[in-house]
């Protein structure tokens, strides 16, 4: 359990972390998401006392990290894989780290085996690849059998096998009732790994919610319909609460109706549909929306309270040009080229 209250970090006049309050609970994988400079790493460093907060405080299991009798047993931390003396072997590094807490060679061998470093354990860390460095960092984090794990970009530099390994490891650790906090720039990775996500932008908490809520709350589900008579469909289904956006002359994106309702309406009017695709927002879209708002908020140009998404969608809803209907023969080609929606198209 990690609890931050109004946690603030200033570097001179720059505020890296601005009055951040959040709770990271046991038994869940909590993801820290945010663009570069959002304050993720700084916040993580403050949790384990490497950076001094300028204001507020953060506790681990009810106490400041430095007040625990066995810090390594409370929190295992991977801040960056290069926080290791290059001239020492992986084994010596772990042995020295563990020695502070009376953790012996037996446990060191366990974590070396767990992270698959057996073959390189006696080699000097300077020759390690980024991926091996990450594994060693994770081994160090696991050394004290901690109830809380803090992993900053743990999959950075890992091969696909390593990425899957980290994902399964953190899920397993959370299932044991441990608190797991990890950051990642890979939003797709976060969607597969985390239960709960805290989005940081410019040092502030933008969202703090379960992954599912975040995706459904910050993005709108929509339906893409492609038809040579798109303009007619748009007129048919137009009603309060339904937003129709024309992507091009034959492609509509509809918010507020299910795919079935759109299909039924088209069939009833005898209009052929060349494509009908339900579009769901991804976590990445949710993240982009949230952080984009943060940028607007910080520059003070727009009112952050304004529901910008639907307003902008309406603005594009109108102009459907009738002479586009004159080329029905081209429609199959168009439909094919739009048949595989990508996630970036989904929220347009």
């Amino acid at each position: 359990m990690i609890e931050a209250h109004s946690l603030t970090k200033k570097y001179g006049s720059k505020t890296a972390v601005d009055q951040v309050t959040f709770t990271v609970r046991p038994g869940l994988v909590t993801g820290f998401l945010g663009p570069n400079g959002a304050g993720k790493s700084t916040t993580m460093r403050m949790i384990v006392g490497l950076d001094r907060p300028s204001g507020g405080d953060v506790t681990v299991n009810g106490k400041l990290y430095r007040d625990h009798a066995a810090p390594l047993h409370e929190v295992g931390v991977l801040l960056d894989a290069k926080a290791i003396h290059q001239g020492r072997s992986a084994y010596s590094h772990l042995l020295a780290l563990g020695a502070t807490h009376g953790i012996g060679a037996k446990r060191v061998h366990e974590v070396i085996e767990m992270t698959g470093l057996d073959s390189v354990a006696k080699k000097r860390v300077g020759g390690f690849s980024l991926g091996m460095g990450q594994r060693l960092g994770i081994a160090a984090a696991m050394l004290g059998d901690p109830s809380t794990l803090i992993l900053d970009e743990p999959v950075n530099g890992l091969d696909p096998e390593g990425v899957v390994w980290v994902r399964e490891l953190v899920r397993f650790l959370a299932s044991e009732g441990r608190t797991v906090l990890l950051s990642s720039h890979l939003m797709s990775e976060m969607a597969q790994t985390a239960d709960h996500i805290i989005v940081l932008g410019k040092g502030r908490v933008l969202a703090d919610a379960p992954v599912k809520d975040l995706v459904s709350g910050a993005t709108t589900s929509s339906v893409r319909a492609v038809s040579p008579r798109a303009a007619e469909i748009a007129r048919l289904i137009n009603s309060p609460g339904v937003t129709v956006t024309s992507v091009d002359g034959e492609t509509l994106e509809i918010v507020g109706l299910t795919a079935a309702a759109v299909g039924d309406a088209a069939a009833a009017a005898g209009i052929a549909l060349h494509e009908l695709t339900p579009l769901r927002g991804s976590l990445e879209d949710a993240y982009m929306n949230l952080t984009a708002d943060a940028v607007e908020y910080r520059t003070g140009v727009f009112d952050p309270a304004a529901p910008a998404t639907s307003a902008s969608a309406h603005a594009h809803a109108g102009p459907i040009v009738d002479d586009e209907q004159a080329a029905p023969q081209n429609a199959p080609t168009h439909a094919a080229s739009h048949a595989a929606p990508t996630s970036t198209e989904a929220t347009r």
Binding site: H68, L72, K82, I84
Partner: peptide, 14 residues
């Protein structure tokens, strides 16, 4: 210079 100090201080936060 190697960043080892962060590992050392994480283990001995005082």
């Amino acid at each position: 210079s190697t960043g080892q100090i962060r590992s050392s201080f994480a283990a001995v936060p005082k």
